[in-house]
Write a protein that binds this DNA or RNA. Structure first.
Lengths: 126, 126
DNA sequence: CGGTATCCCCCGGGATACTG
DNA sequence: CAGTATCCCGGGGGATACCG
């Protein structure tokens, strides 16, 4: 996004996809849906994503107001992440995504496989 | 995705996001919603995206059965892209995305701005 | 515990030029 | 018209190591 395409502005969907289209944001929202969680808890659930990446993702979401980060002055340190109202409002957006995926994942995968197989068969077209 | 994480399988949402999370797929679906379009038509609507990129995106979508590619044996050549049933079924998925974006884009942008401004103020925390 | 700091690789995506 | 062929850059994201 170097030359500030007006597409970025004219197309709101891009804002959402840039925000939740990355690898972990959706899973984070889902995981925080029923209450705040600590950094390590999230890491475990997210299959031990690298701390750097998790931090980066969380910071980005915090920046956009999707969640809050609360540091507790204890030893050992404790940090909790919690969805904001805005963060919670994303659930209705994700449900259709989930539903579509659940319903069509097999179809897509088999279509993809068939398509690849067909291409592999006919290198003759060249 | 090198070491085939089981997350890819266990989390259907990823399939969708990997598919429509890229820069152009959503816009393509929206643009093909009311009927087939030719390659150049798509290019124009999509703010003159590079042919290479457009081709790549379209091929990926074709591979997953979201659209069909029809070549007409004419001169000059004509190629039309049309959503499949599966492709059309994505619309209900995108509408909430659109709606959320329309409703919250200003909020997110201002929250983001405020957040950045605050960080710029306090390099003292260091 | 909850992060930073580095290094590194891959690839999405744009620019430019050429072709059947 | 509808693509290919190259080159290139930025950054997402993982691995590893270290820190307050």
């Amino acid at each position: 996004m170097k030359h500030t395409n007006n597409l970025d502005i004219c197309c709101p969907p891009r804002l959402v996809l840039d925000r939740i289209g990355d690898k972990w944001s959706v899973l984070i929202v889902l995981n925080l849906s029923d209450g705040p969680k600590r950094f390590s808890e999230l890491r475990e659930t997210l299959h031990h994503v690298t701390p750097k990446v998790l931090t980066h993702t969380l910071r980005g979401m915090e920046r956009d107001g999707l969640l809050t980060r609360t540091v507790f002055a204890e030893v050992p340190p404790r940090v909790e992440y919690e969805l904001t109202q805005l963060g919670h409002s994303l659930r209705p957006v994700m449900e259709p995504i989930n539903a579509w995926a659940a319903e069509h994942v097999d179809e897509v995968l088999s279509l993809r496989k068939a398509h690849d197989a067909q291409l592999a068969d006919e290198p003759a077209a060249h």
